[in-house]
Design a protein around this nucleic acid. Structure first.
Length: 243
DNA sequence: CAATCGTCCTGCGGGC
DNA sequence: TGCCCGCAGGACGATT
């Protein structure tokens, strides 16, 4: 599922390739990411925005398949193929991204420890994993990376924020940066259908410690990884390492 | 304020 | 072998 590292990877690849090209008469002046949204900016101030949701793909000069929803053609003959097997993803042209940008909390890779503590203090009764995945609180983290961040921080996903010690909060904050940066470096996690803008899989899958590892041995202590429901989602954790 | 449920969708794995 | 069932989940709106 494309989260911050996956969308960031696509953003970086696209910005190298499509800036200066024209799409339906408008010249591309920039490619950005906000939360899990990919933004293509045009000369006239408008933007084309995408949410890949669970199975969306954006592939440069990709080949059309039965999952192809749209093909965007540039003036130089190159194109951008939007595939989405599950059809949850979407795209739209908007005149301004102002409202969109304001609808999200601070970027996960830009939030300071002080800011992070302030965000947590406003939601004492929320579960920590739910907050990490709440785009209005912190933007960019989804199910996979929230599990991984909490494993590294030795904190159970269902812990209430009010119960967290300051040392745990600091650890979670540090690991948000650590894990997301490492995942960007490895071009994301291809757990399901994710591929980058060149159609290649990301390499973070082999670094996953808990996500989708239910009943497998914890790499740290050997205890079997557990899975618990958090709303409609799964939270994976080591019942021994994580308190 | 927090949690839950329904909604969108379809490939895939489990069970028989 | 093949078929059916239900799970997986990001985000949003309505409800409790």
């Amino acid at each position: 599922m494309p989260e911050l590292p996956e969308v960031e990877t696509i953003k970086r690849q696209l910005s190298r390739e499509i800036i200066g090209k024209k799409l339906e008469g408008d010249k591309v002046v920039g490619v950005r990411r906000r939360a899990k949204i990919l933004i293509i900016d045009f000369t006239d101030g408008s933007s084309l925005i995408f949410h890949l949701k669970l199975t969306g793909q954006l592939i440069l000069n990709g080949e059309a398949s039965k999952h192809t929803r749209c093909i965007f053609k540039f003036d130089d003959g190159s194109n951008l193929v939007f595939n989405d097997m599950r059809k949850f993803g979407w795209w739209k042209k908007i005149a301004s991204t102002k409202k969109l940008e304001e609808s999200f909390g601070p970027e996960a890779l830009e939030v300071s420890l002080t800011e992070f503590k302030k965000i947590l203090s406003k939601r004492p009764k929320a579960k920590i994993k739910a907050l990490l995945m709440d785009q209005k609180a912190i933007a960019g983290i989804g199910n996979i990376y929230s599990d991984e961040i909490l494993f590294l921080s030795k904190v159970r996903p269902l812990r209430l924020i009010v119960s967290l010690m300051q040392s745990e909060v600091s650890s979670i904050w540090a690991n948000i940066g650590r894990i997301l940066k490492r995942a960007v470096k490895l071009r994301g996690t291809s757990e399901r259908s994710y591929v980058d803008a060149r159609g290649k899989k990301g390499n973070y899958l082999k670094e996953l410690k808990v996500y989708r590892r239910e009943n497998k041995k914890c790499f740290r202590c050997g205890t079997l990884i557990k899975r618990e429901k958090l709303g409609s989602r799964s939270a994976h954790y080591c019942p021994n390492c994580q308190k």
